[in-house]
Computed example of a mutant assay.
Amino acid sequence: MRRTALFAAAAALVAGALAWPADAAPSAPGTFVHPGVTVSAAQLDFARSKVGSGAQPWKGAFDRMMESEYADLNRTPRPRAVVECGSYSNPNHGCTDEREDAIAAYTQALAWYVTRDERHARKAIELMDAWSAVIKDHTNSNAPLQTGWAGSSWPKAAEIIKYTYNGNWAGSGRFATMLRTVYLPEIINGSNSNGNWELSMTEAAVGISVFLEDKASYDKAMARFRTRTAAYVYLDSDGDLPKTVPSQHLDTRDKIVKYWQGQSTFVGGLSQETCRDFTHTGYGLSAISHVAETSRIQGQDLYGTDVGERLRHGLGLHAKYQLGAAVPGWLCGGSLKLGLGPVSEVGHNALANRLGHAMTNTETLTLRGRPAGSNNLFVAWETLTHGDNPA
């Protein structure tokens, strides 16, 4: 009996370690939709109409965005040829400058779309052109993550400007070359670090692939996304142990528990980084929502698959404790490091508003955080773009 139980446990472990999501990864569309990275033209039109009418929460979200440093028309780009980022951005040689200039380009693009003030479009172009003229490489230990963070914002800005602004963007080809030669090679093959790394990198790879209309890279990034998402958020249906990424060789229970920050009890919605802190977990959940949203815009809706279920349960569990629920002793030793960040709008809108799932804790947290701002890394202004947006 004991040997049978051990055999069954071993078999389950191997199955979990090697399992890929049951649903095939989405393939690139026959024709890419533009603008189509995280936010669509219809979503932009909805937000613009609400701001124009003074409706809340969109008007308040727009005002918060316009009051930020990222919307400043006097902003001076700070490009450099080599961005060097060590662990926790130490050293920080251009890391903050790059991320924030990328967010600023996206902010200016949104400001252009809502106001039709061409100064904002030209400022977005100025920021994108400044970096595409200079940057050659990312170095040091955080290079892949840094590339993912900045690379998530650049294509969102570029998509809006290229496909909605009728002015001349003479440097768009050079910008595309920058994404293809400086950013994509650093992120397309993923990472075996904590899951938020690969999810952020994959978000950037998917967005860049849309802008470049690179179907091969899109397919590769999406396949990696499905595998990593399944390994990042646990569902009860996964079995006794979380799924894993095959290349990480997490082939024993002890290895898996260690990778999950020492957590040995698994419940639906738990993240691989829950017991590390909620901030990094929020990065991962945000990236999942952004890729799912881009995929939906491109014609393949992942919210009805395991991706949506993992996102729904992940947001719900972390929102519960972020709102102040007592932490049980079995969860991270009874102590959590909170700080989820402004990451719930996209997932809540898709799963609660579009699909009708009850998400009480996520909704409470989302409403409490409105209007959502920026995490100054790769998340920005999602109450404006996705709050209760039916498009």
Rank of each mutant, 00 (worst) to 15 (best):
residue 150 A to S: 14
residue 163 Y to E: 00
residue 200 S to Q: 15
residue 231 A to Y: 05
residue 264 S to H: 13
residue 376 N to L: 12
residue 94 G to H: 02
residue 122 R to C: 03
residue 324 G to C: 07
residue 156 K to T: 09
residue 241 L to V: 09
residue 1 M to G: 14
residue 49 S to C: 00
residue 95 C to T: 10
residue 171 G to E: 05
residue 236 D to S: 15
residue 330 W to V: 11
residue 313 H to L: 13
residue 123 K to G: 01
residue 106 Y to D: 05
residue 228 R to Y: 12
residue 244 T to G: 15
residue 39 V to F: 10
residue 113 Y to D: 02
residue 350 A to K: 12
residue 30 G to T: 12
residue 97 D to A: 13
residue 161 I to H: 00
residue 328 P to T: 06
residue 33 V to A: 07
residue 264 S to K: 15
residue 99 R to P: 02
residue 300 Q to C: 09
residue 306 D to N: 12
residue 332 C to D: 00
residue 69 E to A: 14
residue 299 G to W: 04
residue 179 L to Q: 11
residue 27 S to Q: 11
residue 288 I to Y: 04
residue 146 Q to Y: 01
residue 42 A to V: 07
residue 164 T to K: 05
residue 97 D to W: 13
residue 170 A to F: 04
residue 38 T to L: 10
residue 125 I to F: 00
residue 314 G to H: 05
residue 205 A to K: 01
residue 124 A to S: 14
residue 345 E to L: 03
residue 72 D to N: 15
residue 367 L to M: 08
residue 101 D to V: 09
residue 66 M to G: 06
residue 44 L to W: 08
residue 245 V to H: 02
residue 228 R to A: 06
residue 185 P to R: 15
residue 243 K to D: 04
residue 300 Q to I: 10
residue 210 V to M: 07
residue 148 G to A: 05
residue 209 S to I: 07
residue 150 A to N: 04
residue 232 Y to C: 11
residue 229 T to S: 13
residue 141 S to T: 12
residue 337 K to G: 15
residue 162 K to H: 01
residue 201 M to N: 04
residue 110 L to G: 03
residue 329 G to W: 10
residue 86 G to K: 02
residue 249 H to L: 15
residue 40 S to Y: 00
residue 230 A to N: 14
residue 94 G to P: 04
residue 27 S to N: 03
residue 282 G to K: 06
residue 96 T to M: 08
residue 53 S to Q: 15
residue 254 D to P: 08
residue 26 P to D: 02
residue 341 G to L: 07
residue 12 A to S: 14
residue 121 A to E: 02
residue 92 N to A: 11
residue 153 S to N: 12
residue 299 G to Y: 05
residue 79 P to I: 04
residue 201 M to R: 05
residue 72 D to I: 02
residue 240 D to Q: 15
residue 190 G to E: 11
residue 238 D to C: 04
residue 109 A to K: 02
residue 107 T to L: 05
residue 329 G to R: 12
residue 343 V to F: 07
residue 259 Y to A: 14
residue 286 S to M: 01
residue 227 T to W: 12
residue 222 M to R: 07
residue 104 A to R: 08
residue 117 D to S: 01
residue 243 K to F: 15
residue 303 Y to G: 01
residue 47 A to N: 07
residue 250 L to P: 05
residue 48 R to G: 02
residue 170 A to T: 11
residue 329 G to S: 15
residue 43 Q to G: 15
residue 235 L to G: 03
residue 105 A to Y: 02
residue 244 T to H: 09
residue 346 V to A: 03
residue 321 Y to I: 10
residue 171 G to R: 02
residue 96 T to L: 08
residue 61 A to G: 10
residue 53 S to P: 01
residue 210 V to L: 09
residue 57 P to G: 07
residue 371 P to C: 08
residue 158 A to L: 10
residue 222 M to C: 14
residue 16 G to Q: 09
residue 270 L to A: 11
residue 71 A to Q: 04
residue 219 D to I: 11
residue 142 N to M: 05
